[in-house]
């Protein structure tokens, strides 16, 4: 007398997966739009201090009008001890032929010039317009930052940015 069990056991219907690629592509495009590429994996440890009302660097990054300098304790402790360097610099992409090398302030000038020369002519901004963004560790001494500032002043790269983590939404 089974009213609901007509025609014996049916196999479970398979789920239609033809729209799965569409869903995944949608996710993919979301991530492509919402994120920015990492510019480099730094060889120095940087824990940034927090700050508020900082300016968003993304537009400058998209126009590649910004150079990043990292300042922190080298990850390679052994080399740091050998070279007797407490805080080292990491300069983004160009001029890092040897990732184990620890850079100090006196390489900043050459690096800025190399990056400037490497740019194609039609994308070139005057040197004074390219922002140099310093991502320094919270414990790093400001003396080094002012040394970098002085180097930049010498080559007339007159825009400096102090990077912080800003968790507020503005």
């Amino acid at each position: 007398m089974s009213k609901f069990n007509k025609g014996g056991k049916k196999p479970a219907p398979s789920v239609n997966t033809s729209s799965l690629p569409d869903i995944v592509f949608m996710l993919l495009f979301f991530f492509m739009v919402a994120t920015t590429t990492k510019e480099a994996d730094p060889t120095v440890e940087v824990i940034q201090p927090t700050g508020i009302r900082a300016e968003d660097m993304t537009p400058f990054k998209q126009r590649s009008e910004i150079d990043f300098i990292y300042l922190g304790v080298p990850r390679n402790k052994k080399r740091a001890a050998e070279a007797d360097i407490e805080y080292a610099l990491f300069l983004d992409n160009v001029m890092q032929p040897n990732p184990n090398e620890l850079y100090t302030v006196n390489t900043v000038r050459q690096w800025k010039k190399d990056k400037f020369d490497a740019k194609p002519e039609r994308m070139k901004q005057p040197m004074s317009e390219v922002i140099t963004c310093i991502k320094a560790d919270e414990k790093a001494p400001t003396g080094i930052i002012f040394d970098i500032r002085k180097e930049l002043q010498e080559i007339e790269a007159l825009k400096l940015a102090y990077s912080v983590t800003d968790n507020s939404n503005n």
Partner: peptide, 12 residues
């Protein structure tokens, strides 16, 4: 996102 304070350096 990268956030920073932009400060001009005075000319030498």
């Amino acid at each position: 996102r990268d956030k920073a304070y932009i400060r001009p350096i005075p000319k030498k």
